[in-house]
Every structure is written in structure tokens, then in C-alpha cells.
Design a protein around this nucleic acid. Structure first.
Lengths: 229, 229
DNA sequence: AGAGAAATTGACTGCTTGGTCAACTTCTTT
DNA sequence: AAAGAAGTTGACCAAGCAGTCAATTTCTCT
């Protein structure tokens, strides 16, 4: 029996081994390709080149370009929601918002292609993400909004519109992935390095924390910031 | 002679009257169409429909889809730079930055399609805007950066990285045009109205002004904010 | 009014696109 | 080892694409 079980387990572990590997490989290379040109601007031939496979092989696994694109999007969405985890009522507002901003900036740096695919999708009307936006995201934002309202009610941070605060944080953090070309042009550098990301993170932290009437960690030269209007 | 001049003037005013009108009409309707689907996602047939003209007529005026797209982009770029006009050393930082933010928010509301076309272009590597970014925009940012450094040196505002401050302002203001679909989904409304734009503007003003150690206008319940770390 | 320039447009074309398919190879299981 | 399942692939196709063109109408100026 144990032998048979082991064999069965080995079977299931083996079954679809190649499949799983190829699915992941194709989705990952497609993320990069879609980020460069968007859904409409990316051809199946280009996606095949990016994966180093013949076009027909991609169709074997995903059927259509649209289904491959959806797979790429879905791979990205989890990241999006998980970043919000630090925002819980028990934590101090400055600490929670700081952790959130750091997580978002980290993702902008580590997964710029994911951010670009997401941005391009929303920019063009989010035809493949309506459900995610109006259900999963909306629910999560409502939930986290209540945490912020709780902090405000307790006088732990300034009175700021929580939803617009999220819009601001999303915009400021994602811009480091989405608009990197513009930043590189303005800064006159060929790539955004650690220095630029650190300066960006510091700026975003400063604007958000001071805007919420909270002190920044790197400038605690004494007492708490009294901006509580 | 004066008669001949008048006639000549009338001639030049008349010559190309239809041309000018059609060029403008096509560029304006194309802006909307390109905003919806990006350069690659917008077909000449779609652009023709948007303008209410046959496809061949668009080719008569612009030659190629790419030239029409460039015309749309160039129409947008002037807006971009002109918004920065309020930022001059003579003005008070809070007033100047406030005016800049209001101008940018105003454009996001009045010309959302322009913002989306610009965003889509940069998102996909800015193949048609390299020159603008590395020359005109870079020069302008460097110039305005000096104004902010001047304010900081005089102790008129907190020490904030001026370039990243611009990145933050661009991101927060343009997101109201570019990501409106996401906002509408999260807010559960069908269109962003005056209320949403006012709440957004207030939030952006708050974050930027408090982040720069400047008081907000709507909350001057006494003295200046002492955040000057 | 008339002649030449400017503008309009339906019909067309060569090419690229997403997607199919049948022949083939490689794995997995017994 | 053998057979069936899973994976691979070059050749192919219909549809849609940007762009052309010649015939026609409308405009402008004298």
C-alpha cells in the first residue's frame, strides 16, 4: 500500500511536469513582451520569439492570444492585493503605511513588467479586468479604507480621504515602473538604480507620512510632527 | 497697395481654410480614439469612423497612421510644458506648487484623452517621444528644479529631492485621467465628477504641501506647519 | 462663368495577423 | 518493449490591416 501510494504520488507529481514548466515559462516571457507593446501591439510571433518556441506551441498551451494575456494578468493580480496586507488596525499608521509603500516600491523595482501590463490594461479601459476591479479590488479597498478611518477617528493620523490616499500611493509607487523611460530621460541615466529607487521611496514616504500628519522614520530628530490639521 | 495687401491677407486666410479645419477635426477625434486603444490597437478604419470621414481622406491629409499619431502627440506636448509656468522663484513655494498642481489636475479633467495618449506612449517605451523627453522636458525640469533648490536653500520649504517631487506630482495628478476606470470601479460610480476631482485635488495638495513643509491653504487655522526636517 | 487647384471617395492591393492542422517526436506507464 | 498520451512543429489559411489610386466633386480665384 505505501508503495502504491508513493507511486501514485510520483505519478501526479510527474503528470503535467512538462506542462507546468512550459506554462510558467511562456507566461513569464509573455509578461515582458506584453509590457513592451501592450496587448494589441504584441504579435503571437513576437510572443513565440520571446519564449524561444514556435508559435503553434503557444497555441497548443493557451489556445488564443487573449487567453495567454489573461493568464499573464491573473498571475499579476495576486501581487497587487497581497501588498495591502500590512494595513491592519493593530499596527501604528506610520509603520503600516510605510510598510505598504515599501512593498509597492519593491514590486515596481522587482516586477516592472507586471506593473506595465497592468497599467496598459487599465489605461485602455480594462476590458479584461472589470470583474477584478469592481469586486476583489473594490472589496479590499473598502476594507482597508475602514482601517484608515479607524486611525483617523482615534486621532492617530490626520483627516485624509482614505480612498484618494490609496490612489495617490498607487500612482506614486507604480510610476517608478510604468514611466521609467521618462524618468531615465529626465535624470539622464540609462537605468534606474538603487540610488534612484531609494530617493523615490524616501520622497513618497515623506509626502504620504507628512500628508497624514505622521513623522517620517528617517527624520525623527525629536518629537512627532504636529501637522494634524 | 493696401487693397492688394488686404486681398492677399484674405487669400492666405482663405487658402487652406478647409484644410486647417479638417486637420484639427481629425487630430481631435484621433486623440480620443488613440486614448482608447493606443497606437497599435487603433486601426485606420476606427480613426476614420471617429472622424466621420472615409479612410482615404485621412490618408490624404496625414499620409500615414504614424504621421497622424505624431500630430496628435505634438498637439499634447505643449500643454505638458506650459503647466510648469507658475513655478518661478519670485512666488511663494506653496502658492507656486499649488497653482501647478491645480493646473495639472485641471488638464487631467479637461483633457483626459491627451493624458492617456501620452501615458500609453511612455508606457511602451516612448518610441515617438525620445527627443522630447531627453531635450525639451529634461531642460524644463532642470530649470524648475533649480527654482525648488533655491527655495530650499532659502529655507522656504523642506529639503525634498526636487526631481522626485516632480515625479510624484505628475503621477498623482495624471492618475486621475489615466486610471479613471480603476477609480470609478473602486468608488462605484459611472463617472468622475466635480466631487471626486475636488477630493483628489485636496489630497494631492495636502500630500505635496505638507511633504514640503508648507501649510495648506484650506487648513490655515493659525500658524505655519513646522515640519521642516 | 470657367479653369485649375484642392478635396473627396469607392475600389483595390500586398502583406501581416491570429489561428488551424496533420504529421511527427518524445515522454509515461504498464 | 510496446502502446497510448502528451508535446512539438512547419506549412497553411481566411480575415483584417495600412496604404494606393484614379475618377469625381467641390472650392477658389480671376
Amino acid at each position: 500500500m505505501p508503495g502504491k501510494q508513493a507511486v501514485a504520488a510520483e505519478e501526479t507529481a510527474n503528470a503535467g511536469r512538462i506542462r507546468r514548466g512550459q506554462l510558467l515559462h511562456i507566461v513569464e516571457s509573455a509578461e515582458r513582451a506584453f509590457a513592451e507593446a501592450g496587448f494589441a501591439g504584441t504579435t503571437m510571433t513576437r510572443l513565440a520569439e520571446a519564449a524561444g518556441l514556435p508559435k503553434a506551441n503557444l497555441h497548443y498551451y493557451f489556445g488564443t492570444k487573449e487567453k495567454l494575456y489573461r493568464a499573464v494578468l491573473e498571475n499579476i493580480l495576486t501581487l497587487w492585493l497581497d501588498d495591502m496586507a500590512p494595513i491592519v488596525p493593530e499596527r501604528a499608521p506610520a509603520e503600516a503605511l510605510g510598510a505598504y509603500i515599501r512593498a509597492k516600491m519593491g514590486h515596481s523595482r522587482a516586477r516592472p513588467h507586471a506593473s506595465k501590463v497592468f497599467a496598459s490594461e487599465i489605461l485602455h479601459g480594462a476590458p479584461h479586468l472589470r470583474g477584478f476591479l469592481t469586486h476583489e479590488l473594490r472589496r479590499r479597498v473598502t476594507e482597508k479604507t475602514r482601517v484608515i478611518e479607524h486611525w483617523i477617528a482615534r486621532g492617530r493620523m490626520a483627516k485624509v480621504d482614505p480612498v484618494h490616499l490609496f490612489f495617490a500611493i498607487w500612482a506614486m509607487t507604480q510610476t517608478y515602473a510604468d514611466f521609467d523611460v521618462q524618468m531615465r530621460a529626465v535624470l539622464g541615466c540609462t537605468a534606474l538604480g538603487a540610488a534612484e529607487y531609494e530617493a523615490g521611496e524616501e520622497t513618497v514616504l515623506r509626502l504620504v507620512l507628512h500628508g497624514c500628519g505622521l513623522e517620517t522614520e528617517d527624520t525623527n530628530e525629536g518629537e512627532q510632527c504636529p501637522c494634524r490639521s
